[in-house]
Design a protein around this nucleic acid. Sequence first.
DNA 1: TAGATTGTTAATCGATTAACAATC
DNA 2: TAGATTGTTAATCGATTAACAATC
Lengths: 190, 190
Amino acid sequence: MGGVHADSNAIACALGLTPSTVRQDFSHLPIRGAPKRGYNIRQMERALAGKVGIDSEKPAIVVGAGNLGRTLTLRTDLRRYGFLVRAIVDVDPAIIGARVGSLTVEDMSDLADIARTRDIEIGILAVPSSSAQSAANMLILAGVRGILNLTFARVVAPRRVFVVNDAVISSLLTLSWAMNRRRNATTARA
Amino acid sequence: MGGVHADSNAIACALGLTPSTVRQDFSHLPIRGAPKRGYNIRQMERALAGKVGIDSEKPAIVVGAGNLGRTLTLRTDLRRYGFLVRAIVDVDPAIIGARVGSLTVEDMSDLADIARTRDIEIGILAVPSSSAQSAANMLILAGVRGILNLTFARVVAPRRVFVVNDAVISSLLTLSWAMNRRRNATTARA
DNA sequence: TAGATTGTTAATCGATTAACAATC
DNA sequence: TAGATTGTTAATCGATTAACAATC
């Protein structure tokens, strides 16, 4: 009845999983399939969007207005998933006041005020690794609930604040390791 | 004798693991500890650097000279881990020829030549998601052994080419999901 | 020596997969 | 109806943890 459907096998192929895994995972979500037809795609989208939180707005602040911070602030696709960069701050007086898209770089010492008045939920760390923890501490004090850590430094936070690490360098290292493994395996076989 | 040591418990604390896991993992590497003293830090560094491949040079090309591509090319810390950005290319004639640090943006149609003459092993995808796969195909044909995919699109490649995905957006979604989970759990409890 | 810490084997745990009765 | 596909239970697998004899 109406709506486009996909069965667990098709979904599994698209994601590189087994049909079993797909059905097992869906059983934990408000997603019901129909025998002989599969899963309604619209329903899947809604359930997954709700689970991940794409469907709600999540105001964010970018800390650090270097190349990385500015690049991130200018990315428009974040908005599509509910992430709103409402402020960008830096410590460098030479950078404070500069325009970044529709925002102006503000003084990092105003971070707490900014976070409170603009309902900031997420802090994005784009500072040098050496100041990652101190910047994180300011975010934590300012009451953010989540931190995306783009530095290479490990950041500690109380349990109520979630930290996700996404340093490009660590992905590169994963790649390096995988390439290395292949080479070693080949060598060993030879 | 000599050298600074750390026992499995200290290492586990630092990494958020259990001492068992640390010892188990080390047993698969050329890292031997000494009862009552623990593991030699220098030896650990060497073994891990070798495993990950930090100790060898890995020439790379950045594909896409937008904000992200330029930012990445300018990052100096990649060098510390053996990643050498030897070229940056784009399709846009308006961008080709521009300076990015010590490099000049080159024409993407020269990608295969560039990759071969400069021994490129790694391709870094910093193009719009819509052209991710076609750019990846060019890299694959050019003979790279690994691709770091910074776009949000999924990229397919033959098994001999390793693909690692690192879209900032997916990390943000992980964060959003974690924050959501907390909220849902709290609501359910109430 | 006594005590601490390794390396390894066995136990536990969770996640992935297989299997199959229920059902459209 | 016959056949395909779900939802779920049971089996498998790998990874994490516990335990403990070996050893410095």
